[in-house]
Design a binder for these strands. Sequence first.
DNA 1: TTGAAAGCGCTAACAT
DNA 2: ATGTTAGCGCTTTCAA
Lengths: 352, 352
Amino acid sequence: MSDTITPGTRAATIRDVAALAGVSIGTASKALNGRGKLRPETRERVAAAARQLGFQPNTLARGLLRGRTFTVGLVTSDSFGRFSIPVMLGAEDALGAGQISVFMCDTRDDPIRERHQVQTLLARRVDGILVTGRRTEPRPSIGTDLPVPVVYAMTQSADPNDFSVIPDDIGGGELAVRHLLATGRTRIGHITGPQRFLAARQRADGMAKVLDDAGLQAAGGAAFFGEWSEEWGRQGADILLRTQPDVDAIFCGADQIARGVAETLRERGRRIPDDVAVIGFDNWEAMALGSRPPLTTVDMNLHKVGRVAADHLLAAIGGQPIGGGVEEVECELVLRESTGPISQPLTPDPND
Amino acid sequence: MSDTITPGTRAATIRDVAALAGVSIGTASKALNGRGKLRPETRERVAAAARQLGFQPNTLARGLLRGRTFTVGLVTSDSFGRFSIPVMLGAEDALGAGQISVFMCDTRDDPIRERHQVQTLLARRVDGILVTGRRTEPRPSIGTDLPVPVVYAMTQSADPNDFSVIPDDIGGGELAVRHLLATGRTRIGHITGPQRFLAARQRADGMAKVLDDAGLQAAGGAAFFGEWSEEWGRQGADILLRTQPDVDAIFCGADQIARGVAETLRERGRRIPDDVAVIGFDNWEAMALGSRPPLTTVDMNLHKVGRVAADHLLAAIGGQPIGGGVEEVECELVLRESTGPISQPLTPDPND
DNA sequence: TTGAAAGCGCTAACAT
DNA sequence: ATGTTAGCGCTTTCAA
């Protein structure tokens, strides 16, 4: 079908096209870019020549001339893992629409490597840089005074002059617990990851806030901090069931934890959601769907985090100045069987 | 510390460096690249100027001149998922060493989009293209006659002139079952994914081969094809236990399936590995480690698949012609508790 | 040892 | 309506 591409080795240049069409280089350029005043017939002749040669304008030359490359760098410290991938795809959505290509750089959590990669990106004259990670805590800025705009996504720069987009973990915690309250639960425990994680603390804070407004307290008095693992979920559930046998819901800081919790509940003969409701966090589908029953969970909308970050970057590249600051993206509840059906559409009045 | 970078907006050019050092552009170029004959003092002066201005040579200009950009395109149809990520990281290892940057392109399984992305990559004058996927079955070539070398990784081109690197799924199946035999199992069942997946068929073939050599047969007579899910693992185990109650090992086509199988075995009171050994496939750590007990599994060495593919691509870029064909990368056994300790170092003689 | 100039592929201003 | 030319930032002859 498309054997119109130069069979040989060298890619065709505009010079080749011009020669084949019997016009000058300048004319060829105009014809191809739809600029200037040309006879339609000439335009067509050039187009035909380009088609025949499989001509693709050399973006390097264009970039050199225009001072814009239509590329951005994506620097991640998450090895493109579970968190940065959705962010990246979201970013690609926004950037791809603008014909922008993305250089991927994996820092492997090595600051030296990161520095080097940023330098490389600058040498390649990217129009902007997106920085991603797997943790929301502030991290060192990749540079205070770079010649291109930078936006952080799913990670936060410690420099207040930088702009970051992160999920709203407090809101996520609130969302989860409001849902549990709405289904009539009142003795709610919280089993989550290590306290040194900002995300763990914030989700717990969100929970505390909602419980407080409802005049309630967490089952067990406070959050159970541990690990982001199924094993900890099993252990934590064990402890919680022993100390608070009347618990009727457990909010888990991660789907992995929730799975472990669900397993232990099953083994202890507690029915989910009838006896105890379980809610996870992350919407890691492989985990949430494999669990019995499938987990209701909080989705951080990472795709949107990426899209929003990329939109801001594009705006900045377009000349719109972005100040420093942090934008938070709302979390979203994903309903599955582990919390059962929502009760009557009651007006959520925490004062009654 | 490093506020040597041009504070303003425009990145420094070699012209700026030359001016600051009081030399000509040509001299500056030589000094920076360690070429030609220059007075050491001059060299130093230029270096100092470059440092002061935070000079980064414009790779576009260089690429334009040299006809090489030191970039490659990475085209994936896996949305950078569980399979393509390790491949990609492996490739990055090999490429990063060669100072090569990677453009990422996610086709979202859309041929139109893919075609477009390949065109874009060619316009950007990448030195080569790497194509990745999540399935090993042959897929349409991205182009028969592209001006740059192409290598497929974790996916296979239908065109025999293209070069592909994929995991050795047959060998993986053999590996798994040889291990089970080595631990003294003889009544081995196989629960795996859909038969339409080449990988599922090949793993089953590998199993059949080893059993055959040992004069054995699969428990239940043949593989149980189903889905790549925990749910199917649970169901499959149920069926297998009912029809073949004396089964003493189950080889699963995926860790997810193995997890489901393990759960059902537990619930039916079979101890793992004492009564029944379980072995998975993929070494998906979140799954394999979350399972009780943690799963022995077959690792496809995807990192190596990526590295090997990238090495071939680099060689091709360097001028070494790669013929068409398929290279298979060995799988590797990852021992965990679900198959118990290996028995005596017996000489594996299947004829006794 | 250093400088001047050509040219990589393209676009945009200026001639014709 | 078309052609000519300068120049983006760099490397590489070739002169000085």
